[in-house]
Simulated scan of single mutants.
Amino acid sequence: MTTAQDLAIVALIVATDKPVAQGELSLALAGAELFDLIEARALDLDDDHIVPNAQAPTDDRLLDEAAAALVRQEPYESVEDWLWRRGRGLSSAYVDDLERIGLTTRPRGRRNPLRTEQTEPAYSAARRRAEERWAAGEPVLTTLAAAAGIGDEPADDTEALTDDTVTTVLAAVGDAVMELEAVRQRRAIEDAAFDNVWRGF
């Protein structure tokens, strides 16, 4: 299991009580994939740019897909650009992949992911591992989850969050989530203004 898979499982568990925003979760999952690829030695960070290493199979379909998608020519891609490019639709991809490998259950005839009456984690070793990391307050997982609107932001003085690579990725995820919310607010204002114009006719 990977951090991205653990985050997807936690999101499905939390969605039992409330829906999880797919846009924020997709950005957080893209960030989680960076941590998994760093752990697999598939990439390094040079400041805020992603420098790929020789690609080696990770035995995880989505993570291998992520590694194959890395920009391998200079100038390398920034973490922020990666989050937006890789994150598009990623929450649905993880829900589908967890179902494909038998880690979720979904009643027949229902298709909308991240609604727990339709998709929920099966009881498995993978679910127990994700729940244990979540219950232990593992800093990277809980910070990514908080960015996706799941749980509370962990204390930022945790030793695990002092590593430059970790803080770079987590900061980029936080910035991307804020930018996404700003875009939504601008659209809402524009839509409201448009509606007001039509009311004047």
Score class of each variant (00 low, 15 high):
residue 140 V to A: 00
residue 140 V to G: 00
residue 140 V to N: 00
residue 141 L to W: 05
residue 141 L to T: 03
residue 141 L to R: 03
residue 141 L to K: 08
residue 141 L to Y: 04
residue 141 L to N: 05
residue 141 L to A: 13
residue 142 T to D: 07
residue 142 T to Q: 05
residue 144 L to M: 04
residue 145 A to H: 04
residue 145 A to M: 09
residue 145 A to L: 14
residue 146 A to S: 03
residue 146 A to D: 01
residue 146 A to M: 00
residue 147 A to G: 06
residue 147 A to S: 08
residue 147 A to Y: 02
residue 147 A to V: 02
residue 148 A to Q: 07
residue 149 G to A: 09
residue 149 G to C: 07
residue 149 G to W: 12
residue 149 G to V: 09
residue 149 G to I: 10
residue 151 G to H: 07
residue 151 G to M: 09
residue 151 G to P: 06
residue 152 D to L: 12
residue 153 E to I: 10
residue 153 E to A: 14
residue 154 P to M: 12
residue 155 A to G: 14
residue 155 A to V: 08
residue 155 A to C: 14
residue 156 D to A: 12
residue 156 D to I: 07
residue 156 D to F: 09
residue 156 D to Y: 04
residue 158 T to D: 15
residue 158 T to Y: 11
residue 158 T to V: 15
residue 158 T to H: 11
residue 158 T to N: 11
residue 159 E to R: 08
residue 159 E to M: 09
residue 159 E to K: 10
residue 159 E to A: 14
residue 159 E to F: 07
residue 160 A to G: 11
residue 160 A to V: 14
residue 160 A to K: 10
residue 160 A to L: 13
residue 161 L to N: 03
residue 161 L to S: 03
residue 161 L to M: 08
residue 161 L to K: 02
residue 161 L to I: 04
residue 161 L to Y: 03
residue 162 T to V: 11
residue 162 T to F: 15
residue 163 D to Q: 10
residue 163 D to E: 14
residue 163 D to A: 08
residue 163 D to K: 12
residue 164 D to W: 13
residue 164 D to E: 15
residue 164 D to L: 09
residue 164 D to H: 10
residue 164 D to A: 09
residue 165 T to F: 09
residue 165 T to P: 14
residue 166 V to F: 00
residue 166 V to R: 02
residue 166 V to L: 03
residue 167 T to D: 11
residue 167 T to R: 13
residue 168 T to F: 02
residue 168 T to A: 10
residue 169 V to C: 01
